[in-house]
Design a protein around this nucleic acid. Structure first.
Lengths: 246, 246
DNA sequence: CGAGCAATTGAGACAAGTCAAAGCTGGTGG
DNA sequence: CCACCAGCTTTGACTTGTCTCAATTGCTCG
C-alpha cells in the first residue's frame, strides 16, 4: 500500500508532470483542487487509460477499486434491469469524477461513446491523498452535491414531464455556455431515449416536431442541433409553454 | 460570525448536552461522526426546531442559510413545476441530513408529514466545524454518495419500471430491517404517487391488485402494509416477475 | 351522527409504446 | 468513383398502460 504521500517537493523540472500540463480537463476537475506545485502527488498515483468506442470501463456491481477522472471524450453511465431495460443516469465528460460509491460497489456501468481518455486512481492511495489535502475532500463533496441536485432535477423530468418537455430540457442541459445555441450530440438517439425514459421513436418524432415548429434545426449528420427559439425552448423545458401539445 | 470552535473541553457535566443524549437519531446521523466527548461543539451551534404537520421548513430556491438534521418524524422533499406538477424526490427521517446545495440555494422544498423535529445549523458555523473535524466531512461525503446511489436507483424506477414494479420497489425500499414484512406508510397515497411518478388512482389500483394477488395485506387504516410474499415482491421490484401484467 | 378528507372504483381518452417498413449516412471494396 | 452494406434514424399504423374525470366508499374526529 502506497502511503508515502508526504515527500520533499522535487526539483522544478519534475513538478506538474507533462501529462497534467497538457490536460484540457484539469481546470474543471479534482486536480484543480491542488495547486500546480502539488499536482505531482496526484500524478504519482494516476494510471492513464483509454477506452475505445463502445468499450465498457466500469461495470455495475463490480468491486469499486478505482476512481476515474475523465480527461477526454464522453461516456454513458447506465443501469440495467434483469430483462434488459436500460436507464442512462448521465453522460460524463472531461473533468467528471466517477466512482463515489459508499457501498464499495459501482452503482452503474460506464461505456465510452467514441474514444474516452481517463485517469484511474486506486482507492487506497486516493483516500490517503484526501487525508493529506482537505481541499480535495471539499471539492468532492461539492461535486457530489452538484450531482445530487442534477439527479433530483432528472427525477422531476422522469416523473413529471411530457416527452416534448424532456427533449427541451435535455437540449438546454447540454447547451454549452460558450456556444449557447449550438448543441453537440455525440450519443445516439437510443442513448437519448434511455436517458429521458422514452423510446427512440418518441425521441425522433419529438425532435422532428420541434424542428417543424421552428424551435430547433437538426444538422444533416444529426449530431448537431441549433437552437432557433431559445426562449420558447426554455419555457417548454419547465412545462410552461402555451402551445402545441405534441 | 462564530468561529471560536477550538476551546478547552469544559467540565464533565457540560459534555454531551442533555438533548443530544436523549436524541434517538444520533447513532444514524452526522453527530455520530464526533466522539461523545466532542458533541458539545455541535450542540453549541445547533438550534432545535419543530415543524407541525404539513408545515414547510425548507423552500426550493430560497437562500440555503442552514443545514438541517432530522431527529424525529418524516418529511417529504419535493420539487414543483410552474404549472403545479409535483415530484417528491425523497422522504427524510431521523438521522437524515438536509441542505447540501453547492449553488447556495435549496434545490427542493421540505414539508413535515406529521410532526417533525430537527436541529438547524447555520452554514457558517458548520463550515468552520468541518474544517476542525475531518471525520464530519467524510461522513457528509459518504452520505452524499449514498444519496446519489439512491437517486440513480430512483431514476431507473421512474424511467423504466411499470406502475406495479414501482409500487413493489417502493414497498421494499421502505421495509425496515428490524420488521422486514411490516411497512409503515405515514405519507398519503398522493405523496406515494408523486414519489413514483404516477397518479393517486394508479397507486390505489395497483395496491388493491397486489392485495388481491395475495402479495400484500393493507391494514384497515391504510397506514400499514404487511408483506405476504416477499420473494414475489422482490422479483416484481426488479422487473423479473413472470406473471400478471396488471 | 355527519362533515371533511382520503382512498377506492369505474368508464373513457390519450400520450407514448410496439411493430413494421422505408430513408439516410458513412464506410468499404471492387 | 460508385455500388452496396450495415446501422442508425425517421415515419406510419395500431395497441395499450396510465391518466383524466366522475362517483362512491370508508375512515377519523368533533
Amino acid at each position: 500500500m502506497n502511503m508515502a504521500i508526504v515527500l520533499p517537493i522535487p526539483s522544478a523540472e519534475v513538478i506538474a508532470p507533462c501529462f497534467c500540463n497538457a490536460c484540457d480537463a484539469r481546470p474543471a476537475s479534482v486536480c484543480n483542487a491542488l495547486p500546480a506545485k502539488l499536482l505531482f502527488h496526484l500524478a504519482r498515483i494516476a494510471h492513464r487509460g483509454v477506452a475505445n468506442a463502445n468499450m465498457s470501463f466500469i461495470a455495475e456491481g463490480e468491486k469499486a477499486e478505482n476512481y476515474f477522472n475523465i480527461s477526454a471524450g464522453t461516456a454513458r453511465l447506465y443501469k440495467l434491469l434483469p430483462n434488459g431495460r436500460r436507464q442512462i443516469i448521465g453522460f460524463a465528460g472531461p473533468g467528471d469524477f466517477l466512482g463515489l460509491a459508499a457501498s464499495g460497489q459501482f452503482a452503474f456501468s460506464a461505456e465510452a461513446i467514441g474514444e474516452v481518455e481517463f485517469c484511474r486512481y486506486p482507492r487506497q492511495s486516493w483516500r490517503a491523498l484526501i487525508g493529506e489535502f482537505p481541499a480535495m475532500a471539499q471539492f468532492l463533496l461539492d461535486s457530489a452535491s452538484n450531482e445530487l441536485v442534477a439527479a433530483q432535477e432528472q427525477m422531476l423530468l422522469l416523473g413529471r414531464k411530457t416527452a416534448r418537455e424532456r427533449l427541451a430540457s435535455f437540449l438546454i442541459e447540454r447547451s454549452d455556455p460558450a456556444t449557447p445555441h449550438l448543441i453537440a450530440l455525440p450519443m445516439t438517439r437510443i442513448d437519448i431515449a434511455d436517458y429521458l425514459g422514452l423510446t427512440v421513436e418518441t425521441v425522433s418524432r419529438n425532435l422532428t416536431q420541434l424542428s417543424v415548429d421552428g424551435i430547433i434545426t437538426v444538422s444533416r449528420s444529426r449530431a448537431t442541433i441549433a437552437i432557433i427559439d431559445g426562449a420558447r425552448l426554455r419555457a417548454m423545458a419547465n412545462g410552461s409553454d402555451i402551445s402545441s401539445p405534441i
